[in-house]
Amino acid sequence: MGDLVGHGLVAGYEGKRVLSGLDVRLASGQVTVLVGANGSGKSTLLRVLARLHVPTEGAVLLGGHDIARDSTRALARKLTFLPQSPLVPSGLTVRELVGHGRYAHRGVLGRTTGDDLEAVRWALAVTGLEPLAGRRVEELSGGERQRAWIAVVLAQKTGVLLLDEPTTFLDLRYQIEILALVRRLADEHGLTVGVVLHDLNQAAAFGDRIVMLSAGRVVASGEPHEVITAEAVRDAFGLEVSVATDPETGRPTCLPSLRGHLTTKE
């Protein structure tokens, strides 16, 4: 499939520039995490990479091919995006919902083939939803529901998966569960994953590479220990942190320095 590459991307909303000419690369088969402060442009970047937002300048290439030239359906067979909190449609079962992921393959009139059934079965299996396949989506817990959404885009069988803050609104256990799933998708199924996360420690623990954005530019990118440094975090977030290494994973972790933010009791 090849890498997903953004070149000289400029984008914004109503005259407000959010991305000001940045380059980014999501390496094939790896999990790339986009991090940055609020308003740094990470979600916009993800949407531009998914072609949900059209950049005013620059291009996004997938395996060297400009995605702007694909039809919506053709692109959806190669690349997909899961928004932060999709609308929960009422009355659908999990299996029916996941079946929607096959639209790019079946089209308006195409018949449902063995491939479609197999893809849905696989997506349910990977996300561990097989026992819940007949349940209604609105009856699921938060974590189950998020897995169901991931199953929808997995059933699409694309090489590239872009996730916008998939752990928001989930408690810690579900957060880890979802991130472990994301990790497995890259490791075991060879997907190229781009994901926006808020938690720098989770980004460092689960990402192969991290792209740190600030004010619409990439301020650091590379492996976690290269990016998560006290200097980079200070530049991007305006916050002093101390960076240590997690003894269990060998990945960097950072703790905000609270000096100057707390008044000490006499």
Binding site: A76, F81, L82, P86, V153, Q156
Partner: peptide, 8 residues
Amino acid sequence: DLPRSLGL
């Protein structure tokens, strides 16, 4: 967003 990601 999702319908477009799914190819519509």
